[in-house]
Simulated assay, not measured.
Amino acid sequence: MAVVPLQYRFDGPRHAPVVLLLPHLGAKWSMWEPQMPDLTRDLRVLRVNHRGHGGSPAPQGAYSVAELGGDLLALLDTCELERFSVIGAGLGGMLATWLAAREPDRVHRLALLATSAWAPPARRWQRLASQTRAGGTVAVVEEVTRSWFTPAFVDRRPDILARMVEEFESVDRQGYAGCCDALAEGDQRAALSRVRAPTVVVSAAHDPVLPPGHGRRLSNGIPGARFEVVSGAAHLVNVERADRVNELLVAHVAS
């Protein structure tokens, strides 16, 4: 499959070190808004949208992690970025790991949020892909989004959930399904030992999709990686506990 030209944007000081932000499956680059004030003080932030998210095209068919990673490499080459840090969440974290293992000399620092090297069971992702191709993201919105936040956060900030659900429902069905296929087949465990960038892995204490055991196994596979568990948050830990996540990211990536 040919490389897809991803939608992207830069924010922050023009000549500062670059950090690439890779979002969760089903979320757009707007999911990183809680991090932007802190990260853009000293870094030039590059945000992207996955295939079918926002303005990124969505070719039909199943995707692979390598194909999604190829989109990122093409963009980084287009932007002439030879050295950068990467922060990835969920699917974005798996792609960040792929990128750091494949291009160890280019990735300066790595931060992985609510993610895993391997996201079983494959049949769940295959089912979500099939349902989405048939009925669009509205067919799976309830199942997918109920893992994003704790009930206490939803009660306190229903506006944030409503906005993110609306964005999720606008994701192209082919793009979302194809990315589900990539997760079904994706397995980065053998690549972890090739990661050379200093890495922090962050899990959310109440994440029902990828509980902290996934993050611990991921950090154990990456040489020298540090593992952190953030309390009071579900899968979208960077939104629900932006205060703590920002502390961790700034200390790790902007140092």
Rank of each mutant, 00 (worst) to 15 (best):
L21M: 07
L22G: 07
P23A: 02
H24Y: 08
G26T: 02
W32S: 03
W32C: 01
P34T: 00
M36K: 00
P37C: 00
P37W: 01
D38L: 04
L39V: 03
L39R: 08
T40G: 01
R41D: 02
D42R: 05
R44A: 05
R44D: 10
V45C: 03
V45F: 01
L46S: 06
L46W: 00
V48C: 01
H53T: 08
H53G: 06
G54L: 01
G55S: 09
G55E: 08
S56V: 00
P59N: 04
G61F: 02
A62M: 04
A62D: 13
S64L: 11
S64I: 08
V65A: 11
V65N: 09
V65L: 10
V65W: 13
G69I: 04
D71Q: 06
D71Y: 01
D71V: 08
L72Q: 09
L75N: 09
T78I: 09
T78L: 15
C79R: 14
C79M: 15
L81S: 00
L81Y: 04
F84W: 15
S85N: 07
I87V: 13
I87A: 05
G88L: 01
A89F: 13
G90H: 03
L91W: 11
L91T: 08
M94L: 06
L95E: 14
L95C: 05
A96I: 04
T97N: 08
L99V: 10
A100D: 08
A101P: 03
R102K: 13
R102P: 04
P104S: 10
P104G: 01
P104F: 05
D105V: 06
V107F: 00
H108M: 14
R109Y: 04
L110P: 02
L110H: 07
A114M: 04
T115R: 03
S116H: 07
S116G: 12
W118M: 08
A119E: 11
A119D: 15
A119K: 13
P120K: 11
P121H: 13
W125R: 09
Q126F: 12
Q126P: 12
L128Q: 15
S130D: 12
A134W: 12
A134Q: 12
G136I: 10
G136A: 09
A139M: 05
A139W: 11
A139R: 15
V140F: 07
V140W: 08
E142C: 09
E142T: 10
E143R: 14
V144T: 06
T145P: 07
R146V: 14
R146F: 13
S147C: 15
W148M: 00
W148F: 04
W148Y: 00
F149H: 03
T150I: 12
F153L: 08
F153R: 01
V154C: 04
R157F: 05
P158Y: 06
D159Q: 05
D159P: 04
D159N: 06
L161W: 04
A162W: 06
